[in-house]
Design a protein around this nucleic acid. Structure first.
Lengths: 240, 240
DNA sequence: CGGAACTTTGAAGAGAGTCAAAGCAAGTGG
DNA sequence: CCACTTGCTTTGACTCTCTTCAAAGTTCCG
C-alpha cells in the first residue's frame, strides 16, 4: 500500500518527515487498463501523476485528428508537469498496458511546497529535466537519420529500465511499432526495417515486443549520442 | 534604468511591492554584440535572463560539432529555465544582434520565491509554457512538411512581435536563413525555396531579412495550426 | 478456431537533401 | 568612391532516404 515515492518518484533529498507529509497527500488510483486515459487533452488540470507500474504515452492531436506522441512514461516518472499553469491538460495520457499511478493533487502539492523548499526544488528539477530532454528530442527529430533515431530510442529505454532496476539488455517494449514510429517521426515500415537491419548486424535480437541488446557498444555508436545522452550510455555501460 | 519587468518579463500578477522586491535582485548587463555568448553550454549555472531588446538563439551541440538551435528569444522572453536544477547550462545562448538582457541571479530568486508564492508560480508557469511549446515543436519536426514548418514559424514570430507591440505583418527576421533551417530541421536551400514559393502565391513579400505578410489568412492555412497554435493565430487576427 | 490488429517485406514514388555555382549584400581598405 | 573580399541567399540539377501503397505473414485474444 506504500507508494515508495522516496525511491521511485523523485530522486528526493527530502527528510523522512518530509516524505511522510508528501505521502499523506498522495492518492492511489484504480489501475488503468490498456487503452484507458489517465486524462485527456482539455480535461481540467488538477493533479500530476507518478507511474508506479506499467507505462503510458503522452500525445497531442494534430488538426487532422492524428496523434503525435510526445513521450512515453515508465515507472517512477512524473506525468502532467506541462499543465502546471493551465486550466486544462495540454496533452493526453493513455495507458499502454495495465498501469497503476499515484495521483498528487496539485493544490495540495502547492500548499506543501510552501513549507518544504526541497520539495519545490524537486518539482523544478523534474520540469527542467523534461525541458532538457525535449531539446534532445528536437535534435533527434531535426538531425538524426532513421537508424540513429531508433538506436537512440533503444539506448534511452535501456537506460531507463536499468535505472528502475531491470536489465538494460533485455526488456519488453510496452509500445507498438506504430507508436515508436509516431514518436520518432518515422513511418511504421521504416521502424520495422531498421529493426530488421539492426538484427542482421547482430546488434539486437527482437522477438515481437521483446528486445535483447546483444552489442551495446554498436548500439551506442549508431545512436551517435552527444554528451547529454552519452551520460545515459555510460550509465548503462558502468555496471550491469 | 527601470527594467519594466512588470509588463515585460513575466505576465505577472504580482503586487507592486512584490515587483519592487524582484526589481531589486535584477542586475543589468552590458549589451551583447552580435555573436556574443550570453552563456555557453557547460558554463556554471547561476542566473536566468530576460531579454530586454534584441534577440538570441539557444542551441545545443551535436557530436560532430554542428549546432541544433532549440529556440529563438525575443524581448520579454526568459532564457535559462532548462538549467534550473543543473550545475551548468545545458545549452548555449548567443546574441543574434545587439542585445540587452536582465540578469536574475537564481540563488536570489530562490530566496525571494520563498516569500513570494506568486513569483514562484510565475516561474512554474514559464517553464510549463516552454514545455508545451516544445511539444508543439516536436509535432512540427515530426509531422509537418517544409512549407508547413516555415509558415508555422512565420505565424509564430508574427504573434510574438504583435505581443510585444510591433506590427504582426511587417518585421525583420533577426536570424539568417541558415538558422531558420537549422531550427526547423530543413536545409538552407529548402527554406530559401519555400520563401520563394510563398512569394509567388502573394502570401508574403520578402526583402532580405524584412518580411511582410500580405495574406495572413493563407499563411495560417498553410501553417495548418492546431488548436494550441491557432490561439496564436486568432490573436494575430483579432486586432492589429 | 478465426478474425482483427499488428508487423514485416517489397516495389515504386516523392519530398527534401546535397552539390555546385551564380547572384547579392555588406564591410574593408586603398 | 570604387574595387575586392567575404559571407549569405538563391537557383538548378541530381541523388537519396524515407514514405506510401500493397500484400503477405504473424500475433493476439475473444
Amino acid at each position: 500500500m506504500t507508494c515508495s515515492l522516496s525511491s521511485l518518484c523523485l530522486p528526493l533529498s527530502l527528510s523522512l518527515e518530509d516524505i511522510d507529509q508528501l505521502d499523506n497527500i498522495i492518492k492511489r488510483r484504480q489501475p488503468l487498463k490498456k487503452g484507458d486515459h489517465l486524462f485527456r487533452q482539455g480535461d481540467e488540470f488538477d493533479s500530476i501523476y507518478a507511474v508506479r507500474s506499467g507505462s503510458l504515452k503522452n500525445y497531442i492531436m494534430t488538426n487532422d485528428g492524428e496523434e503525435q506522441i510526445t513521450n512515453f512514461h515508465l515507472p517512477s516518472e512524473l506525468i502532467g508537469l506541462d499543465g502546471i499553469d493551465c486550466v486544462s491538460y495540454p496533452i493526453s495520457a493513455k495507458a499502454l498496458e495495465t498501469t497503476t499511478v499515484c495521483e498528487i493533487p496539485y493544490s495540495r502539492l502547492q500548499e506543501l511546497s510552501n513549507t518544504l523548499p526541497d520539495l519545490r526544488q524537486q518539482i523544478f528539477s523534474c520540469m527542467s529535466k523534461e525541458l532538457r530532454e525535449d531539446k534532445q528530442m528536437m535534435l533527434l527529430l531535426s538531425k538524426k537519420s532513421a537508424e540513429e533515431r531508433v538506436a537512440t530510442f533503444l539506448a534511452n529505454l535501456s537506460a531507463r529500465f536499468k535505472r528502475r532496476g531491470y536489465s538494460p539488455y533485455t526488456f519488453r517494449l510496452p509500445m507498438s511499432r506504430n507508436e515508436i514510429g509516431n514518436y520518432l517521426g518515422l513511418a511504421v515500415e521504416t521502424v520495422s526495417r531498421v529493426f530488421t537491419r539492426f538484427q542482421s548486424t547482430k546488434m539486437i535480437a527482437v522477438n515481437g515486443k521483446e528486445v535483447h541488446i546483444t552489442d551495446q557498444q554498436q548500439l551506442l555508436e549508431v545512436a551517435d549520442l552527444n554528451d547529454y545522452d552519452a551520460e545515459i550510455g555510460s550509465k548503462i555501460a558502468a555496471n550491469q
